[in-house]
Design a protein around this nucleic acid. Structure first.
Lengths: 249, 249
DNA sequence: CGTGCTCTTGACAGTAGTCAAGATGAGTGG
DNA sequence: CCACTCATCTTGACTACTGTCAAGAGCACG
């Protein structure tokens, strides 16, 4: 049920049986939600956070002219608005892009975890820090990459994140996003995303068709996108990669 | 010394005397750092976080072609790399843009806080969540605003954040950024930032000259930038702003 | 009083946006 | 089983915002 979340937490650090129990018992409810349904509105007091079990969810910010900027895509195992536990109100919307299954975790339960399970608290804090790292990487992409690089970068990220939770099959994966979704996330128009994907296909890098993506050459795609997965914090920290330890500031 | 940080934390929630003591004693060292000096490198194990007392610091990510994307500016009172406590290694650089004073807070002390002060832990977690909110807002700006809006937006943000820690004088504030810094943060070229600032000056919105900014018409600037300060989480939460309470998911 | 940043301005180029029309395909109902 | 409808995708022609390249001005610093 919350196995994909546990998978993600354990890929960072060990979880005790008691911590696992605390997490499991924090789920108050399961819900199915239709596609294109808003699940969190901005500026409203929240009393629970949402854990995504199945489907794709996005966070987005509205603009006065009616357009939107998607700031993050969430995949199964993501604690979609864990940050609402400390923020209490969000500055953005959260909405499903496909039919979804979610678990509801009341803030009271998270409060209890912070009171009694400091190690688990640090792990959850870590999860929100990784979210922030993702936002930074998107800032990099939006601020300094070409359209082709931005789109390629997104496919690299989503592929690895899907792989992490066991949702890929070789270099293929289900990915029920529209070209408009990609445009809204990458700061491009749907028309230009279409041209860009066509060009990536012609270069035999990816195929993206009817909610299904195939990566034909991950290495070249990664190179084109200048993609470095460090920011995803996959796997455990290893002892310092051989770089000289900086005199700790 | 760490008064500006306390000011920021207290503007969110009360701090007990004991919590204040815990924070004060977490500072192991004070440092002066020259301008344009790297204080945190990516991919390296970190054992302390940096609190900014004076000056301006930026976070940035490198690109293979040597350009950089600034993802955040830090002002006095900011806990610059508090997120390194949970991440252990960063995916980006941190560097001073002006001469700075910083306080060093060992991760061991932060660990102690998470073990013994859950309320203070939640407040610190909140601070990193606000950082993430800022990243989201920058994604919005980078992804969907015109050059003029992006620059105006940055001035709105920095002005309010400086005001919060008492560093403004009416609508004037010291702001020792170069146009190149602004360009690297806003995904523009320095040449275009220059033209943009000229245009903002001609419209009598702002003057920016020799490290000093003056906002001539904050309201119109805000309107132009589509700037909504919600994401800065200034001040305490108030009971729900009169909007209808959503049936809690 | 040079030296070297940063800022400023101009001319030109190119990436991505806009507008418009048509194609494709999933879902619906007769 | 076959229209019909509506989303999404696709392509073309044109536009424009922002980048590139280049030269010169202003100012801080030694």
């Amino acid at each position: 049920m919350i196995e994909k979340l546990l998978l993600r937490l354990r890929s960072r650090d060990d979880l005790s049986a008691e911590e696992e129990r605390a997490l499991r018992s924090a789920v108050s409810e399961l819900r199915r939600v239709a596609a294109d349904t808003s699940i969190v509105q901005p500026h409203i007091d929240l009393s629970a956070s949402i854990l995504l079990l199945k489907g794709i969810v996005c966070r987005f910010k509205d603009r006065p002219d009616g357009t939107r900027q998607i700031t993050h895509f969430h995949l199964p195992g993501d604690f979609v608005d864990l940050h609402s536990f400390t923020l209490k109100r969000l500055d953005h919307h959260v909405m499903t892009l496909t039919p979804c299954e979610v678990a509801v975790v009341p803030h009271d339960c998270l409060h209890g975890i912070t009171e009694n399970y400091p190690h688990l608290t640090r792990l959850l804090w870590f999860m929100t820090a990784v979210d922030a790292a993702s936002h930074r990487e998107w800032e990099l992409s939006l601020g300094s990459q070409s359209a082709k690089q931005r789109v390629a970068h997104l496919f690299c990220e989503l592929f690895l994140r899907l792989q992490r939770v066991g949702l890929t099959d070789g270099f293929e994966c289900p990915l029920a996003l529209s070209q408009t979704d990609i445009a809204d996330a990458r700061g491009l128009t749907a028309v230009h995303v279409n041209r860009t994907i066509k060009s990536l296909r012609e270069e035999r890098l990816i195929t993206f068709h009817r909610g299904h993506a195939t990566i034909h050459d991950f290495e070249r795609l990664q190179e084109l996108a200048e993609f470095d997965p460090t920011y995803l914090y996959l796997g455990r920290e290893q002892p310092n990669r051989g770089r000289p330890q900086l005199k700790a500031l």
